[in-house]
Amino acid sequence: MTRETTISIVIVAGLLAAAFIAQAMGETFYITLATRMAILGLAATGLNIALGLGGLVSFGHAAFFGIGGYAAGILATHAFNSEPLLLGLPGTNQMIVIWIAGAIAAGLVAVLIGLISLRTSGVYFIMITLAFAQMIYYFAISWPAYGGEDGLSIYVRNTFPGTNTLAPMSFFLICFGLLVIGLVFFALIRDSRFGAALQAGRQNDTRLAAVGIGPFRVRLVAFVISAMMTALAGALFADLNRFVSPSMFSWHMSGELIVLIIIGGVGRLAGPLAGAIVYVLFEFALGGITEHWQFFLGLILLAVVLFARGGVMGLLAGRARHG
């Protein structure tokens, strides 16, 4: 087992242990913090496929996070009010159905955004993905059917077979389970043929084309997979807060996901999760003292960029190795 894998398992196990300790102490608020870490970690792991493996700095992943969130909110609202949704189809409060719907919706939007934005690179790619996300943001604000600017409440958390999702620990375990699946999926992709092509394209797309692999298709598929994973996290996020609002689509959210990856380690297996843990801890520890806690997060980010390029994973597991 590589050091990268070992450290990643330790971080993931640490999160699980923390939740159980909080449970034993009867501190449900800490379980909620751990749940937040798992969800943000999953969202950023999704982005890490595009950004870390593919070098695609998407500044619009909030679009997919929000689509996942709104999938949960809209389906749950229709189920709650017993109103048919589309073509007579009913809403649902089943998480599994919501996840699939959210991921598919995000995947379709990602195909459209990707077909256009992946024809560019560098700053243009960043700006085009941002522009698309902002379009969706303003669309959500001006869509009164689903709350517009005020957002949409989910009155009862959606259900998952065999558990009571209202119990903080049960909901944490659902999120944690999906996080683990997401991380395993990331590791498999990274080590696969597809991952080899994607990473080679990040390093040198002339080389990729010269061996006969078109970089565009590889990137488009990666972008779509990445969006779907982030959307899944968005659906969980909606259920965590029992509320969705257009702020899930805002560029702050896109930036936050990028920040998580940079703090944790770009392209590293548990990097996004490590970033999410640091982020949520900061938010919790400093957020109580000053509302300007993001200033201190900014200092951390600066320190990482200047002195620890590999982020948390770089410090713990050393430089990335590529076989």
Binding site: I189, R193, F194, I213, V221
Partner: peptide, 15 residues
């Protein structure tokens, strides 16, 4: 892998 025409395989580790 390019010669084998198989870059869309997602799960088998190349190494």
């Amino acid at each position: 892998q390019a010669r084998q025409g198989s870059s869309f395989r997602f799960f088998k580790p190349v190494m």
